[in-house]
């Protein structure tokens, strides 16, 4: 079979599998897990656009996730907007705040940027916990489920298709961005900002642009999250979660969309598989972070590029 033919067949097979998953899975628990996977996938693909390409670690991605979630919830509850409107709007809200935050912070050196985003994330979480409008520490309840006409998406099985659809669109956009002039320039930032400026490229502008796109993804993920769980708690949008998303990116491969996808899936499903003892699992998780960042700088995808592993795959006749 020709390479391109084989790719097309593979794509079709994957597409079919994705579409019939809710029919194959019977348990609520697993379909909820898959939906959660999808949400983290969006967060991580978004994070890749700023952190994966330019190397600026955005530790506030989960704060923007929260901004999107609360924005969407409040737009629906207080203004009565349908989900189909509050979804893109919360993405835009997150993006606009992202641009505002990005403009001053992206001028800083990498470490200062990381600390700045940590501080911002913490302040945002503090606001979520203490403001009246966000429901305080108890969070936001009774967020309406999406509906079209009379059909209500109140089960995880139907909601799955909403998430799948959004993921499809956002991944295509991410792919287009990566293979455009912006993608190239962003990836070059890590190599030489000086050379980029000398080529007439306004590096600050494209950094802020990337940050805005990244927070847009976080906002969308937030909206999807809010209307799926119909209840959001400020504790979700924490520094710990921010580290988790960063780990998802790096375990896959920072700088690649497929890396982000793999990482988010692995790190959503793995913890569930290791559920036997929460405390021991968390200790292992801590060590896992050390191992991933230290010994797998190119993530699992990078591992497949390792010469020894390439030989192995070749021998299996898969290339």
């Amino acid at each position: 079979m020709l390479n391109s033919e084989r790719n097309r067949v593979l794509t079709i097979i994957i597409a079919v599998i994705l579409i019939i998953i809710p029919l194959l899975i019977k348990s609520n628990y697993y379909i909820r897990l898959i939906n959660l996977c999808g949400i983290y996938l969006l967060l991580t693909v978004g994070l890749n656009i700023i952190t994966g390409y330019t190397g600026n670690p955005n530790m506030a991605q989960t704060a923007f996730w929260g901004i999107g979630a609360y924005a969407s919830g409040l737009l629906s509850i207080k203004l009565g907007l349908p989900f189909w409107l509050s979804l893109p709007l919360s993405g835009l809200v997150a993006a606009m705040i992202g641009v505002l935050v990005g403009i001053p912070t992206l001028k800083l050196k990498v470490f200062h940027f990381a600390i700045g985003t940590i501080a911002f994330g913490q302040i945002i979480q503090l606001f979520f916990k203490n403001l009246e409008i966000t429901g305080g520490p108890a969070g936001l309840k009774s967020i309406p489920t999406p509906k079209i006409g009379n059909y209500v998406f109140d089960s995880d099985f139907s909601y799955y298709y909403i998430i799948l659809f959004v993921i499809f669109i956002l991944i295509s956009l991410a792919y287009r961005l990566e293979h455009s002039k912006y993608g190239r320039a962003l990836k070059a930032i890590k190599e030489s900002e000086l050379a980029l400026q000398m080529l007439g490229i306004n590096v600050s502008y494209i950094k802020v642009l990337a940050f805005g796109v990244s927070t847009f993804y976080a906002g969308i993920a937030g909206s999807l999250y809010a209307h799926l769980f119909t209840y959001i708690s400020p504790d979700t949008f924490s520094f710990f979660e921010a580290v988790k998303v960063l780990t998802m990116l790096y375990i896959g491969q920072a700088g690649s969309i497929s890396g982000a996808i793999i990482g988010s899936i692995v790190l959503t499903i793995l913890p569930e598989a290791l559920r036997f003892s929460k405390v021991y699992y968390m200790a292992i998780y801590g060590i896992g972070i050390v191992i991933i960042f230290a010994y797998l700088p190119n993530g699992l995808i990078g591992l497949t590029r390792h010469p020894k592993i390439r030989k192995y795959i070749k021998n299996l006749g898969l290339r």
Binding site: F111, Y280, Y285, G288, V290
Partner: peptide
């Protein structure tokens, strides 16, 4: 930065050792 994130991993590890 990567090492710094590793230290976050150590922090998580320690906090759970404390718990144990």
């Amino acid at each position: 930065v990567t090492i710094a994130v590793c230290t976050v991993g150590v922090s998580i590890f320690l906090q759970n050792i404390f718990q144990i």
